Simulated scan of single mutants.
Amino acid sequence: MELPVTPPVAPMLAKAVTTVPAQPADALEWSYEPKWDGFRALIFRDGDEVVIGSRGGKDLARYFPEIVAAAKEELPYKVVLDGEIGVPHLIDGTHRLDWDRLAQRIHPAASRVALLAEQTPAVFIGFDALALGSEPVMAEPFRVRRETLVEAIGPGSRDRHFHVSRVTTDPVIAQDWFSAFEGAGLDGVVGKRLDGPYVENKREMVKIKHKRTADCVVIGYRVHKSGTGLGSMLLGLFHEGELRMVGGAGAFTDAKRQELQAKFEPMRLDPDKPASGEPTRWRSEKSGEWIPIRPELVAEVAYDQMEKGRFRHTVKFLRWRPDREPESCGYDQLEVPLTYDLHDVLEGTD
């Protein structure tokens, strides 16, 4: 590819905050936009060559042939955009992004990919630009990159695959979006500094989500006390290249327990070893016998608090994340802002 910005590019990330940041009294510092619930993707188009870079750097183009075709029809000859891929679905008369249908698009069979591209076509919602023509814009402030994005995609319509995310500089409107857009399959609100450049792999944006979640690597499981099915799954996060155990997810239905055990059994690291075995760094005599599996699957879980690098309580399994690479699941996603000092809580007078 002969572009001013070439793949792979690690996308700019966001850190979690609890509220929509306010604008300073004397200036506009923030741009706010909806947080789209899909696969993060960077689109690189150089003529007939199109690459769809995932957050982990892999090319997703083979899974979304309709996006590749649309890029050649709807985008400029040379362009690099950042955004989200989603699958709209009509539910009770309203279109919303459907995560389950999106996750099904990651399939190894080419025939299945082609069928799903027709049955559940995806869209790309652009929210940043990295280059247009021969000009890179990553070093430019977001004000300029936003203008470049709008120029590259143009006016949207329902029959197009490429769209531009809406934005506002009004924090009141952003807070309204946080509540009003949830029914459309959105995941909260993102804030970007209007004068900030595009910084690879840095948490320069902020995000306000509807729930506290984490993407974790499944590193093992425990058989249910009944002797059949999965009792709980063991979760890990990477820290300085090392995979560390952070807790477990449980409370599955009988059908789900059977499904998960069948999914994990072929991935066992000790297929010839019975469920009971010697304690390991993830398995102790007191905590029960865990069966280690290949650390290849990423699960999104809901949690309440972290304590000493681990989840304080058992977490809730939400969904699989086929768009995430295990190595990308680190502690940095769990950043929690310090909203109260302990003494403020103890001495407060409500």
Rank of each mutant, 00 (worst) to 15 (best):
P295N: 02
L243H: 10
G288P: 12
K263F: 04
L235Q: 01
D270R: 14
A275T: 09
V298R: 11
W290K: 07
A255Q: 15
R294S: 10
V298A: 08
P279Q: 10
G288W: 03
L269V: 07
R294C: 01
V301M: 04
V298G: 02
L243N: 06
I291V: 15
D270Q: 12
K263I: 07
S284W: 10
L243D: 07
P279D: 07
R294T: 09
L235G: 05
A275G: 14
R257H: 09
P295D: 01
P292I: 02
G250E: 09
G248L: 00
A251L: 07
V301T: 07
R281D: 15
P271A: 03
P292F: 05
E285L: 14
P274S: 08
E278D: 13
W290T: 03
G247E: 02
H239L: 08
E265P: 01
R244W: 14
V298T: 08
K256W: 09
G236P: 05
E278Q: 08
S287Q: 12
E289F: 13
P279H: 14
E278A: 14
I291Y: 02
R294D: 14
F252T: 01
P271E: 06
D270K: 14
P292N: 04
F264S: 09
F264P: 11
I291R: 08
V301Y: 10
K286Q: 11
R257Y: 03
K263R: 13
M267T: 03
F264D: 06
G241V: 11
Q258E: 13
D270N: 15
V246C: 05
S276R: 14
R257C: 06
L235H: 02
G277M: 10
W290L: 13
A262N: 12
G241L: 12
D254G: 12
E265Y: 06
